[in-house]
């Protein structure tokens, strides 16, 4: 179970990374295209879609790695018991909030599909296609929050806080 979860988190990070590579390639293609006089149609649109996909697909991985930042100044001074309550409370809150956000994003995809929404650029891309990674990304984030919530309920430390207290500089 734990291994599967780790794999899923890594998958979230790698997919997001793949999108960053995709942006690089698209921009390079556009530069090369300009030198040789051909157009990469809708390159800007596709780069934008890849950017959205990278931001959202990477949410779960970033969450688990403690990459999403927060203010820990006050909560660091809590006693271990109240700290547990505090983490449980904000995880429950985040779970509720992100469930709503997941619903909103999934509904956006559904509506784009229903109304045959297309992009405005060169190629009329059906919008539900590039919007799907956005919805999937937030749902994956929800699973990551749920995972952390269960960990806290079990009385253990969630993996994001292990990471966020160590300095990012000391990796490597």
């Amino acid at each position: 179970m734990k291994q599967i979860k780790e794999k899923l988190y890594l998958c979230s990070g790698l997919l997001a990374g793949l999108c960053i590579i995709l942006i690089t390639l698209l921009l390079l293609a556009q530069i090369v295209g300009r030198l040789f006089g051909f157009i990469v149609p809708s390159a800007e649109d596709f780069a934008g879609y890849a950017l959205a996909a990278s931001t959202f697909l990477g949410l779960a991985y970033t969450f688990k790695e403690g990459g999403h930042i927060r203010v820990t100044l006050l909560i660091q001074r809590f006693s271990p018991v109240s700290r547990k309550w505090q983490e449980g409370l904000i995880l429950a809150f985040s779970l509720a909030l992100m469930s709503y956000v997941s619903y909103a994003c999934a509904y956006m995809v559904y509506e784009s599909y229903l109304y045959d929404e297309v992009s405005y650029g060169y190629i009329p891309v059906p919008l539900w296609i590039p919007q799907t990674p956005v919805a999937i990304g937030v749902i994956a984030l929800n699973l990551a929050i749920l995972d952390a919530f269960i960990t806290v309920l079990k009385g253990k430390t969630p993996n994001y806080s292990e990471h966020e207290d160590t300095l990012a500089l000391e990796e490597i």
């Binding site: 556009q30 300009r34 006089g37 157009i39 990469v40 149609p41 390159a43 800007e44 060169y122």
Partner: peptide, 16 residues
């Protein structure tokens, strides 16, 4: 697409 086609027909290279 239409400004690109126009650029082509005008004998220029369309560039985004």
């Amino acid at each position: 697409p239409s400004t690109s086609r126009l650029a082509d027909l005008m004998g220029t290279t369309p560039t985004t």
